[in-house]
Write a protein that binds this DNA or RNA. Sequence first.
RNA 1: GCGCGCGUAGCUCAGCUGGAUAGAGCGUCGGCCUCCGGAGCCGAAGGUCGUGGGUUCGAAUCCCGCCGCGCGCACCA
Length: 538
Amino acid sequence: MNFADRIRAELKRAALSIGAPSNIDPLVERPRDPMHADWASNIAMVLARPLKRKPAEIATAIRDAISLADAGVDRIEIAGPGFLNFRLDPAAVANTVRDIVAANENFGRGSEGEHCPVVVEFVSANPTGPLHVGHGRQAALGDAISSLLEWTGWHVSREYYYNDAGVQIDNLELSVRAHIDAGDGEAVIPEGGYHGEYIREIASRYDASTLETVRNFAVRALRAEQDLDLQAFGVQFDTYYLESSLYIDGKVRETVERLIANDQTYEKDGALWLRTTDYGDDKDRVMRKSDGTYTYFVPDVAYHVTKWQRGFTRAINVQGADHHGTTTRVRAGLRALHMGIPEGYPEYALHQMVTIVKQGDEVKISKRAGSYVTVRDLIDWVGRDAVRFFFLMRKGDSPLIFDVDLALSQSEENPVYYVQMAHARMSGIFRVGELDAAKMDISAVDLSVLTEPEEQDLIKQLIDFPAEVDGAAKALEPHRITAYALDTARLAHAWYHKHHVLGEPAPVMSARLALARATQIVIRNTLGLLGISAPERM
RNA sequence: GCGCGCGUAGCUCAGCUGGAUAGAGCGUCGGCCUCCGGAGCCGAAGGUCGUGGGUUCGAAUCCCGCCGCGCGCACCA
């Protein structure tokens, strides 16, 4: 049990003993300013009203009723308007190093999700070109969110949805065909077509004698292309779902029929409309255009029905914020089906744009794709680890400026380098000491000698990891983990600079080796969770 | 115009579900240092949290108005 839980349990017991209501759930949190305390609770202020007593008085009574040993606490102070401030017992803190080392690669994992199935859909780019940097941000986010959910006990399926059936595919076909028809001459790309160099390349590879249609060939080529992009980024999907299959399997037709049967639709101006305004949309939406084809959102709804029917009671869609307008209508369509799909299904994790900056200037073009920078360009420039870390450094809500020069820097200004360096340093201690970190037995080591401020601060940070993972998973916010990684690295560097491990008297050296091991484990787990490597040396 | 998101230190950004004197990195300034692993370490300055109200013991955080920026508002995806 961690310190917060131990303190919370003791607080509750103490509060009940002085007559607090039985439903009390004490809030125990880390104060913003660590000078105040390791942990603090506002319970006395909360109880002031129901107990009709002054907060300070209640705080004193609770303090006197708490068992310090059970809470793992050294002392309790009362401060400000009635905060209870808990200072952890240094020996109890130090002893948690043993738990971290024992848990090893499982340290940080939780069981909150209870193996419930959840599908995380991300990237889902149309097979019409190489992945751009926005897709890259999405790939990093989606993969990290998936990992966060796995770490907290969910059964995650990573899914990619290919829009391989709409007009954009018609345009792809026409674009490739234009190059084929033009031969070596100048191709005339039709309105709405694609202009990148890759189109010419696909056209040049097309062999009519195979009898494969241009359309299929082009889609196949681009899916292969995107697979390479994803591979370069180290992202793996469990399922690729094809929009075209929804038509083939009759899912689109079934969805439409059910919506009509449910009396959720009407005909107007030669089109079929869905009453999405009944479900919070600001206008009704066309399902079937007057030319008889469906708008994209019908297969989209049909697709989400399959998620539900495949047993995913929870679905998360990672999307660019430029698509946020679609969220309401997809949810509206799902509810109009009356299948018991809840209002907030699917959940959305939206993210803002990515801007690539090199030497102070925005980079907007690439040779291969023409008007945009591809993920692979970026990975080729700065490496997979840096791309992942940088994409996860900001919360999705804020636009992201990607500084290529910083990502390339081999110094501690570069955050990825800084974190990886901390891991490498811990590993370096074992290497120089000619010790096998993985085989170290610390069961008999007296950890209570880890009393230096830098040691206590570092250990407290390490203990926090599971709660950080839990919080980030609940909020679907991986950027909290990159922030945690930087904080941890900072404390690890500070400890490393101030104190030596090798060459110290045996009891100190043993305890510090254990701490170095625990630090190595936590940084490695943190980076692993984010899909970033933890090098032994740099 | 309507909807969503964002305005926090010179710059880039954190601030978890309302808590104490609002933080970090970079940059600036002032000192040290060469150590298991490298241009590293310590300290300082720097803020009306866009703005005006409201909610309450307490607001960067929640609610409303206004200003600014981004995105979206198709019988495109």
